[in-house]
Design a protein around this nucleic acid. Structure first.
Length: 388
DNA sequence: TCTGGGGTCCTAGGACCC
DNA sequence: TCTGGGGTCCTAGGACCC
């Protein structure tokens, strides 16, 4: 069955966290504001009722920028940048802590508004979604404009939308006219609007692949479209090179995935200072237990159990290692998770300081379609040997 | 200026089974 | 005694995304 006639939208909220903060603190509109860095930066309420905001120059710690307003971006401050570096670039920018509860609230509001148009929505995190508009009647531009209006009515926030024949182009297009953009891309637009873009703009080409491509003289999507298939295959392998050639032509058949089950749940923490496995043992141990407890709580709250328990360690030199262990039976119990995670911990070198510790549970299944019946018990009840 | 936290998917080798 | 061939599961690491 051909998908040539699909109409796929990508909707991306504009500077989402920052924009939510501006709803709460309208006096900051027009200023460079940076969100991130953990708990610090909570505004102080003065006696006259006005607020005093922290400045980026006052920040000390290991956090990164989560989002920044467009004014801060103009100063060179972008997502994922270390806060200390951001403070060098924009010392007078306002600093606000991240408030995920609030962002989740607005996320629900905008997604509900879009759901009035169609149920064919793919969640891509807190601030973006794909929407399959193929079966929604009307002109695409009108539909997209109505969705933008509905999102604004529901949240007071602007978003950018692109409608295209597939997810690849829709995702690329939603960035082209940000903020408050409304973009339509057709296959005929690919040479003019997509080929000039750096390869890094393609969802799926990250920093590593982009650097490698640029090193081969393939800096733009157009370069990629004109590249020699053999060259790509030699450097990127069969499957990735085939994908690169497809996307360079603007081709992408992936469906909009409306429902999905979680595959893993994890908790991790970066310490304020690196901890020594022996010297700081009590602190590490209590942090470790805390992570296990929180993962267990997450599993229970969301109704899952998992059969594979894993740990993640980051050493002071930023090297990262993982270990995991698959259990006979799935669990959501903090004690069992901690026991398995401790087994994993025995298999790593603990000879240098640790920067980060994480605990993960994967191979998830819904906790309990049939109350407490384990696979083993079910099989034991069978009247014959299930080995065949 | 050292680089968060929560995820997904892919690769690849070895174990193990038929 | 010169070595099959497929399938699945487990584990570790890494790229990538929001």
């Amino acid at each position: 069955m051909s998908s040539a006639l699909r109409r796929i939208a990508h909707l991306d909220m504009d500077a989402f966290y920052a924009s939510v903060e501006l709803l709460r603190y309208p006096e900051l509109r027009g200023q460079a504001v940076v969100i991130g860095g953990g708990r610090s930066g909570v505004p102080e309420i003065l006696e006259d009722g006005s607020r005093r905001f922290a400045k980026l120059r006052d920040y000390a710690g290991r956090g990164v920028v989560t989002t920044s307003t467009y004014e801060a971006r103009a100063l060179g401050v972008f997502s994922a940048m270390g806060m200390m570096k951001a403070a060098m670039l924009a010392p007078d920018a306002i600093l606000l802590p991240t408030d995920f509860d609030s962002y989740r609230h607005y996320s629900r509001l905008f997604k509900s508004a879009v759901a009035e148009f169609t149920g064919r929505i793919e969640d891509r995190g807190i601030d973006e979604i794909y929407i399959d508009l193929t079966d929604v009647p009307g002109e695409v531009r009108d539909i997209a404009a109505s969705i933008k209006q509905a999102v604004h009515r529901a949240t007071g926030l602007t978003c950018s939308i692109c409608v295209a024949p597939n997810k690849l182009l829709a995702k690329i297009g939603s960035e082209l006219d940000k903020p408050d953009g409304l973009t339509i891309l057709t296959p005929a637009d690919v040479p003019l609007r997509v080929w000039p873009l750096p390869v890094r703009k393609v969802n799926g080409i990250g920093p590593k692949a982009a650097e490698k491509l640029t090193g081969l003289g393939l800096a733009t999507v157009g370069d990629l479209a004109a590249a020699d298939a053999g060259l790509l295959q030699d450097h990127f392998g069969r499957s990735y090179s085939a994908w690169l050639m497809q996307i360079a032509q603007g081709h992408d058949e992936r469906p909009v995935v409306v429902e999905s089950e979680p595959k893993s749940m994890s908790r991790e923490t970066t310490f304020e200072r690196d901890l020594h496995p022996r010297h700081d043992r009590p602190a590490l141990s209590s942090s470790f237990t805390g992570l296990c407890v929180r993962v267990a709580e997450d599993l229970v709250r969301k109704g899952y159990v998992g059969r594979t328990v894993g740990i993640k360690l980051r050493y002071d030199d930023f090297r990262t290692v993982t270990r995991d262990l698959t259990l006979d039976e799935p669990t959501a119990d903090a004690i069992e998770i901690r026991r398995a995670a401790t087994e994993c911990l025995r298999r790593v070198e603990l000879n240098r300081k640790l920067r980060l510790l994480g605990v993960r549970v994967s191979a998830l299944t819904p906790a309990n379609a049939q109350a407490g019946l384990s696979r083993r018990q079910i099989q034991a009840d069978l009247p014959f040997d299930s080995d065949e």
